[in-house]
Amino acid sequence: MKKIKSERLYLSDRPPLTPIKVVLLAISYVLLLLYVFIVLWPLAQILITSFNGNQEAYIIIGGSYSFSFKHFRYLFEETYFFNWVINTIVIAVATALLTLFVVSFTGYAYSRYRFKGRKASLMAIMLIQIIPTFAGITAFYTLHSILSAIMPWFSRQMFLVLIYAGGGIASNTFILKGYIDSISPELDDAARIDGCGNFQVYRLIIMPIVRPMLAIIALWSFIGPFLDYLMPSILLSDPKSYTLATGLYTLITDQYNMHQPVFAAGGLLTALPIIVLFIALQNQLVSGLSSGAVKG
């Protein structure tokens, strides 16, 4: 009988593991699992609570359980939840688009062009980072009094978009500039000879290469309005115009509205748009595209 070769080919590029490395690897896995537990446990509680029909205004851990959608029903029927979702998504999308659009230009320009005041303005952008977004309130009060007189249609939500995008543009310009800096300028030259104008160089060559970075910037700018409570709570007065964060917050602070399980249900639904966007961008987030352009 022929002997069957049972040996498997070792295909990994790394050296094989030694016993010590196996132990270390096991320890890292244990630590990681612990971390996963710490992260997932509260999430699991939210999930369980929001579907638990036996929970009332206050969450009681370890109480009896009966599956029901009543908290979700409450959310849609008794609160402005639907408005909040729409508000937040509109603000988030507007913020993401505005940030992407402006950062595309500023990042490319700062990386590729030499102009007067380039260094100084970069420095200024850097310094602006130190000022907390919260200080945007000051800008709001000064600008609002002027703008509301000239352009009455300029709503407070639009201000919110401006404040979010303003902060995002500053920091992301830096990030994108650094990323574009790492792309050989000879690529631009080649594209120019191949027949591209300035704008085409960005659209056809640079943008596809920096797409992973743009995807991350878009994701961050999109998530921002979902997480921020402070700015909308100060800027927005009408509960109908609230964003998700401020709107849901009323469910756990207001004596009359107090409904903690509903808050949990709302929190759960809030995650949905972000997850959808993340999955949509997943392919774009793959980085390392620029390798192979130049020698080496």
């Binding site: 000879e186 030259d189 080649a190 060559i205 620029s290 130049v294």
Partner: peptide
């Protein structure tokens, strides 16, 4: 033009 560093679009 052929560039010293190739400059291929990655």
């Amino acid at each position: 033009m052929v560039f010293q560093s190739y400059a291929l679009y990655p």
